[in-house]
C-alpha cells in the first residue's frame, strides 16, 4: 500500500508537483494520467526513491521513503519512462545483473528468469544482445527487469509508448493479469490506454491532482448533456424547429438539409432520455428515421476539460 501525503517537488523555482495526496491499495491497478510535463514522472521518481521530495511524505507499507529507501526499493519494481537498458549486454546477462543486486542468484535466479521469460514472452530473445532486439522486445525486457524479484508493487512510467497496436494489446493483457495480485501504478498521457487497463484513474495537471476515481465515477461527476445526432427523411423544417414545444426535454441545436435528408442535432439532459418519445413523435408526423446516435461525454472530453481549465489558471 502506498500513501502519498502533501507531496511537493521543486526544481529550482519550478514547482513540478504541488502538494498532492492520494492512496493506492494492494491489488489495484491505478492509472496516473496527465499531459506531458504535468508532473507524472516526477511523482513516480519520488515514489521509487530516485528523487527526494521537497515536502510531504511517501509511505509504502508504513515505511518512509527517506528513512527506509532500500527496504521500499526491495518491494518495488520500476520501469522508467525511457526504459534505459545496457544495450551491449545480452538479455539474460542484464536480468542476471539486476537479480544479483537484489540477491537473487543461482537456482533462485534460474527460477525467476523462467518466470519473467514466460510472463513477458521473451523466449526467443533471452540469448540475444539487447541492442539487436526490437522496440517491443526492449519494452518487455524493461518490464521483465522490473519484475525479476516478483515485487508486490509495480510502477510503470508510460509502459506502452512507442509500441505498435498488437504489442499494446499484449502489454495491456500482461498488466491486467499482473494487477490481480500486485499493486500496479502506471502513468500515461494516452487516455484510451489508461481507460482500457486500470481500475482507477488519478488525473494530474500542472502538478496538482484534478480528479481521482474509477472511470464510471469520473463520467458520473463530469458528464454534462448528451448530444443526439439524427438523420431524418420527410420532416418539415418547421416541425423540427418547434419540437421543443411538444417535447420539453429536447433542445433543438442545428439542422442541415441535403438531398432530402435532414441532419438534426438535439441535446438532452443525461437523466432524461427522450429517445422513445422522439421516435413516437416521428412516427406520428410520418418522418423516417435514418439514424439516431447519442454521443455521451467520454473520458477524453473530461480529460480535456480538466487539463485545459488548469492551463487557463496559469
Amino acid at each position: 500500500m502506498i500513501k502519498v501525503t502533501k507531496l511537493s517537488k521543486n526544481y529550482g523555482s519550478v514547482e513540478a508537483v504541488q502538494s498532492i495526496s492520494f492512496d493506492l491499495k494492494d491489488g489495484e491497478i491505478v492509472g496516473f494520467l496527465g499531459a506531458n510535463g504535468a508532473g507524472k514522472t516526477t511523482t513516480l521518481k519520488m515514489i521509487t526513491g530516485y528523487l527526494v521530495p521537497s515536502e510531504g511524505s511517501i509511505k509504502v507499507n508504513d515505511m518512509d521513503i527517506i528513512d527506509d529507501t532500500h527496504e521500499i526499493q526491495k518491494q518495488i519494481g520500476y520501469l522508467p519512462e525511457l526504459n534505459p537498458l545496457y544495450t551491449e549486454m545480452r538479455v539474460y546477462e542484464y536480468l542476471e545483473f539486476l537479480a544479483g543486486i537484489r540477491k537473487i542468484t543461482g537456482k533462485f535466479f534460474k527460477e525467476a528468469l523462467a518466470r519473467v521469460v514466460e510472463q513477458c514472452g521473451l523466449k526467443g530473445v533471452v540469448h540475444k544482445n539487447i541492442s539487436d532486439c526490437s522496440k517491443g522486445y526492449k519494452q518487455r525486457i524493461g518490464l521483465a527487469a522490473a519484475m525479476i524479484h516478483d515485487p508486490k508493487i509495480l510502477i510503470l512510467d508510460e509502459p506502452v509508448t512507442g509500441l505498435d497496436p498488437n504489442q499494446i494489446v499484449e502489454i495491456r493483457k500482461l498488466i491486467k493479469s499482473l494487477g490481480k495480485e500486485k499493486l500496479v501504478f502506471m502513468s500515461s498521457h494516452i487516455l484510451q490506454e489508461i481507460q482500457a487497463t486500470v481500475d482507477r484513474i488519478i488525473i494530474i495537471n500542472n502538478g496538482k491532482i484534478v480528479a481521482n476515481g474509477t472511470s464510471d465515477e469520473l463520467m458520473g461527476d463530469f458528464m454534462g448533456n448528451v448530444l443526439l445526432n439524427m438523420e431524418l427523411k420527410g420532416a418539415s423544417i418547421e416541425s423540427i424547429e418547434h419540437i421543443q414545444a411538444k417535447l420539453p426535454s429536447v433542445k433543438y441545436i442545428s439542422l442541415n438539409e441535403s438531398k432530402g435528408i435532414q441532419s438534426v442535432q438535439f441535446e438532452y439532459g443525461k437523466n432524461k432520455d427522450p429517445r422513445e418519445e422522439l421516435f413516437k413523435y416521428a412516427v406520428k408526423n410520418k418522418w423516417s428515421i435514418l439514424k439516431m446516435n447519442p454521443r455521451t461525454t467520454n473520458l477524453e472530453d473530461i480529460f480535456r476539460d480538466l487539463t485545459m481549465e488548469g492551463n487557463k489558471d496559469v
Binding site: T48, Y50, Q73
Partner: peptide
C-alpha cells in the same frame, strides 16, 4: 547519458 542511472538508483544498492 543513457538513463540507466535511474534504474540503478531505484535498486537497493548503496
Amino acid at each position: 547519458n543513457i538513463g540507466t542511472m535511474e534504474t540503478i538508483s531505484t535498486m537497493p544498492l548503496n
